[in-house]
Amino acid sequence: MKKETGRPTQLITRKFAKELHSNFMKYRASIIAKYIKKEDANAVWFSVEELENYIHYIKSKGEKTGYDVNGIRIYFGVYPEQRKYAEKAGLMTVFLQATGKKIRKAAKEGEVQTLALVMDNGDGDISSIEPMNYGSIGRPPSLLY
Rank of each mutant, 00 (worst) to 15 (best):
K3N: 12
K3S: 11
R7W: 10
L11I: 11
I12G: 03
K15H: 13
F16N: 12
K18D: 12
E19S: 12
S22Y: 15
M25C: 12
M25K: 08
Y27A: 09
A29R: 03
A29M: 10
S30K: 14
I31H: 09
Y35A: 15
Y35L: 11
Y35H: 14
A41Y: 00
V48M: 14
E49P: 01
L51E: 01
N53W: 08
N53Q: 13
Y54Q: 02
I58L: 03
K59F: 05
K59I: 07
S60T: 12
E63N: 10
E63A: 10
E63Y: 07
K64P: 01
T65R: 04
G66M: 04
V69I: 10
N70Q: 13
N70P: 01
I72V: 15
R73Q: 07
Y75T: 06
P80W: 03
E81Y: 07
Q82S: 09
K84Y: 04
M92K: 02
M92V: 03
V94C: 08
Q97V: 11
A98G: 03
A98R: 00
G100N: 02
K101T: 11
K102A: 04
K105A: 10
K105D: 10
G110W: 08
V112I: 13
V112H: 12
Q113W: 12
T114I: 12
L115S: 11
L115Q: 15
L115Y: 12
A116F: 06
D120I: 04
D120T: 08
N121D: 14
G122Q: 06
D123F: 08
G124E: 03
D125N: 09
I126T: 01
S127C: 07
S127V: 11
S128M: 14
S128N: 14
I129H: 01
P131F: 06
P131Q: 05
M132T: 00
M132P: 00
N133W: 05
Y134A: 09
G135D: 02
I137N: 01
G138W: 03
G138N: 05
P141Q: 04
P141V: 04
S142W: 02
S142A: 15
S142E: 10
Y145Q: 08
